[in-house]
Measured scan of single mutants.
Amino acid sequence: KTVKFDGLQFDFDNPEKALKFALEVAKQKGAEVHIHGDEIKIE
């Protein structure tokens, strides 16, 4: 899975870790997590 935000991109082999990371970043930024297939966007 790939996590994208602020023009940055982070690749994870483990989908659970990717989602956990995305949710943590979103919480800190006050943003929402959007999942599109293998891509997780924080907006």
Rank of each mutant, 00 (worst) to 15 (best):
E39H: 08
G7C: 14
G37Q: 08
E24K: 09
H36M: 12
I42K: 02
F21E: 03
G7H: 05
L23G: 00
Q9D: 04
G30M: 06
A31G: 12
I40A: 03
F12W: 03
D13W: 06
K1D: 02
D38K: 09
A22W: 06
E43I: 14
H34A: 08
I35G: 02
G7D: 05
E32W: 14
V3K: 01
K1F: 15
K41D: 06
A18S: 01
I40E: 00
I35T: 04
F12C: 11
K17R: 10
K4F: 14
F5W: 08
D6Y: 12
F21S: 03
E39N: 05
D6E: 09
E32Y: 14
K41G: 04
F10Q: 03
G7V: 04
K17F: 10
K1S: 11
K29S: 11
G7Q: 04
V33G: 02
F5C: 15
L19G: 00
H36Q: 11
K17E: 15
L19I: 07
A26K: 01
F21W: 11
E32Q: 14
K1Q: 09
Q28Y: 11
Q28F: 10
P15N: 08
H36D: 12
A22N: 00
K41N: 11
A22Q: 01
K29G: 05
I35P: 02
G7M: 06
G7R: 07
D13E: 10
A31Q: 08
P15H: 11
E16D: 10
K27V: 08
D6S: 07
V3T: 03
N14Y: 03
E39F: 11
A26L: 04
D38F: 10
A31P: 01
K20M: 12
A26I: 03
K4M: 12
E24L: 10
K20Q: 12
I35C: 15
D13N: 06
A18C: 12
E24C: 15
K20E: 12
K20S: 09
V25T: 05
K17V: 12
E16H: 09
E16Q: 10
E43W: 13
E24Y: 12
F5Y: 10
I35E: 04
T2M: 06
I40N: 00
K27W: 09
H34I: 13
K20N: 07
K1I: 15
K27T: 08
I35L: 08
D38M: 10
D6H: 09
E43Y: 14
Q9L: 09
K20W: 10
T2Q: 06
V25G: 00
L19S: 00
N14G: 05
D38Y: 10
I42E: 02
I40M: 04
K17D: 15
V25S: 01
E16S: 08
E24S: 09
E43H: 10
E39A: 06
K20I: 10
I42N: 01
K20R: 11
D6R: 11
D13K: 07
F10L: 05
V25N: 02
V25P: 01
V3M: 04
I35S: 04
Q9N: 07
V3E: 02
D11C: 15
G7L: 06
A26S: 03
V33T: 02
T2V: 12
V33W: 08
V33S: 02
D6Q: 09
A18M: 03
E43K: 09
A31I: 07
G7E: 04
E39Y: 12
A22D: 00
F12G: 02
K1Y: 15
L19N: 00
K1G: 06
P15I: 14
Q28R: 12
G37L: 07
K27F: 11
K29L: 14
K29F: 15
P15V: 12
F12E: 03
F21D: 04
E24G: 05
E32T: 14
L23F: 11
E43M: 13
N14C: 15
G7Y: 05
F5H: 02
E32R: 13
F10K: 01
K41H: 15
K41L: 15
A31K: 07
E39I: 14
P15F: 15
L8D: 03
K29T: 13
A26H: 00
H34T: 11
K27I: 10
L8Y: 09
F12T: 02
I42D: 03
L19W: 12
L8I: 07
P15A: 13
V3P: 01
L8E: 05
I40K: 02
P15D: 10
V3Q: 03
E43D: 09
G30N: 09
F10R: 00
A22H: 02
K4P: 02
F5Q: 03
G7I: 06
I40S: 02
F10G: 03
A22Y: 00
F5P: 01
E16P: 00
I42M: 03
G30L: 06
Q9V: 13
N14M: 05
E39T: 12
E24D: 07
G7W: 06
D11G: 07
K4T: 13
G37E: 07
K17Y: 11
F10M: 04
L8C: 15
L19K: 03
V25E: 04
F5N: 01
K1V: 15
K1M: 15
E16Y: 12
F21V: 04
T2I: 12
E39G: 03
K41Y: 15
H34S: 10
T2D: 01
F10I: 07
L8V: 07
H36F: 12
E24H: 07
E43Q: 10
L23E: 07
E39C: 15
E43A: 10
H36V: 13
G30W: 07
G30F: 06
F12M: 03
I35Y: 07
G7S: 06
I35Q: 05
N14K: 04
G30S: 05
V25W: 11
K4W: 14
E43L: 13
I42R: 02
I42S: 03
I35W: 09
I40Q: 01
E24T: 07
K41V: 14
E32V: 14
K27A: 13
H34G: 05
E39P: 02
D11P: 07
K27G: 08
K27S: 09
K4H: 11
I40G: 03
Q9G: 04
K20D: 08
G37D: 08
H34L: 11
A31R: 09
G30I: 04
